[in-house]
Design a protein around this nucleic acid. Structure first.
Lengths: 188, 188
DNA sequence: ATTAAACCTGTCTTACCTGTCAACAATTCA
DNA sequence: TGAATTGTTGACAGGTAAGACAGGTTTAAT
């Protein structure tokens, strides 16, 4: 199996050091999501679901599988933030996409399924509130972490946290802080 | 893998995380419908049949294949246009989604794969230009038809057609025209 | 602390589905 | 024409499901 999109029960079992019989039981109990093949009913587990299962149960996530969940989408117009964020996050081991406007951000969020959205709210506050609100109201985006980048001068981070953001940093200035918070949110 | 009308066994195999040999066996067993080419007997699977097969077996359907040819996405803020468009298009046999802003429109476009985007450009021209431009520059959106709804007073439809729109109507007033153009673009 | 119950996990077996490999055919391209 | 690519076919090895059973761990009660 070269394609890492799905796993068999045996592969999943090896990843977490248990017998494949146990993985089947997790699936039967509904703890781990999987689908069945028509033939004998073999199970296939989407990597995404498997990683979510591991996280939910505080189990270690294998590096090869974690790669898929290190995707970061930066939504910003400021070239400064884009350049700084892209470089810092890539050096930090993340896969980085950039969207210059909210439409493109929407398509990339739905298509590439990043684990973290870094959003520059310095331009359109209302727009950003709408976006976060939409993310938080949709199941399919429930797992997307949101890191808000505000104006350096602004002080009321709490507003954004209340709106549903997972973390807030002020201005793109401190790259170390950006990477640190991103890693924290990505559980790296 | 660009032409999405038919799949080879290998492509179908990759989509459901299985070996191509297994797909051939599903076909031989009659579980998956396919036809053979005269030469070597290559199998070709109609996307429609494949998606039906996936649904029948409770297997996940890839977003790229789920494209429904009668799905319409309306991007507008004017309640008048939304109400008129939704009602008219639904009566015309379309499945209608509505997005109130460009971010939501982006997520729905990537996730629900509508065949037609009705976009109200009366508010933000530049934004709409950017959206159409982005759609036209991306392969995955090449098949999305764009129907632009302009201010009733505006007369230069040509600008939008040049930008990549497939049709333009002026104002939400004429429901018959909206439905007619939508059906034309959907080849209904 | 000890005991018992409940539960989870690993092992074993049978059946058969699935992956791998090799050889070959059709198609494409230079 | 000949190489490269892609798909088929057949044989075989390997993997997985399902049920039953035994051992281990956790939980709760004594």
């Amino acid at each position: 199996m070269n394609e890492l999109h799905v796993l068999t029960t045996g592969e999943a079992a090896r990843y977490c050091g248990v017998n494949f019989r146990t993985v089947i039981r997790w699936i039967e109990r509904g703890q781990l999501k999987a689908y069945k093949l028509p033939g004998r009913g073999d199970h296939r587990i989407c990597v995404e679901d498997f990683v979510g299962f591991l996280r939910d149960n505080a189990m270690p996530v294998p590096a090869e599988l974690a790669a898929a969940s290190r995707k970061v989408l930066i939504m910003a117009q400021s070239q400064e933030l884009i350049a700084a964020g892209r470089q810092a996050l890539q050096q930090g081991g993340c896969e980085v996409d950039v969207a210059g406007n909210s439409f493109v951000a929407g398509t990339m969020l739905a298509a590439a399924k990043p684990a973290l959205l870094v959003i520059d709210v310095s331009l359109e506050h209302n727009n950003a509130f709408g976006i976060i609100d939409h993310l938080r109201s949709r199941n399919e985006f429930a797992n997307v972490r949101v890191l808000v980048v505000t104006e350096a001068s602004e002080s009321d981070s709490q507003r954004w946290l209340d709106a549903g953001a997972d973390a807030v940093i002020q201005g793109p200035g401190d790259r170390a802080e950006l990477v640190a918070k991103a890693k924290l949110l990505l559980e790296m």
